[in-house]
Design a protein around this nucleic acid. Sequence first.
DNA 1: TAGGCCATCTGGTCCT
DNA 2: AGGACCAGATGGCCTA
Length: 213
Amino acid sequence: MPVKAESPAPAAEDELLLLRLASPAPSASPPSSAGEEEEDDEDGRPRRPQDGARRAGRQRGPPRAARTAETAQRIKRSRRLKANNRERNRMHNLNAALDALRDVLPTFPEDAKLTKIETLRFAHNYIWALTETLRLAGAARLGGAAETAPGAAAEGSPSPASSWSGGASPAPSASPYACTLSPGSPAGSASDAERWPPPRGRFAPPPPPHRCL
DNA sequence: TAGGCCATCTGGTCCT
DNA sequence: AGGACCAGATGGCCTA
């Protein structure tokens, strides 16, 4: 399965993150927000002067107001980091689900990795094709010979079983894969994002005639 | 080098 | 209040 080594192991990843966050990384964060908080204290806690020091007339550290502001800043930063962590995990979960989806989708060559958008579109079409196959098989079992005749499938497209079985070469001619929307399709234009088949020689079932993602 | 894809950070919004 | 979800911004990597 074509899973790119994209992220370190979760535990190590967290440590990496902490390391990165502990030192102001030059490239890790966008300029819009990078300067927002500079605080990378060693311990992350506001310093509390010893009792003796407090009496010493000379105040050590920033004045009280500054300290509370600093604390607020620190709390804010801490929450942000936690939110970042959650967001990262969320996206990792999403990617894991996407990988699981990739695993059950046939591709050619087998180790080709579909992009996210391709995976979703392919899955959509694949499900449609499987559904169509089931429908036609059921119809055939019921003796609907006329319905299984070539070209009798949805809108004149060939039977899915014949059209995309076993790594058949994808586009015979442009139209069945081009996703140029049958009439009434709600999807707008067949932009480059909707090109079909995908450019890297992937095996792809025909898109459903009703609508393209 | 431009463009596509991706991971990450971030702030806003909604929900529990 | 805190977490989930979302969309925008940004920078890195890869390929044509």
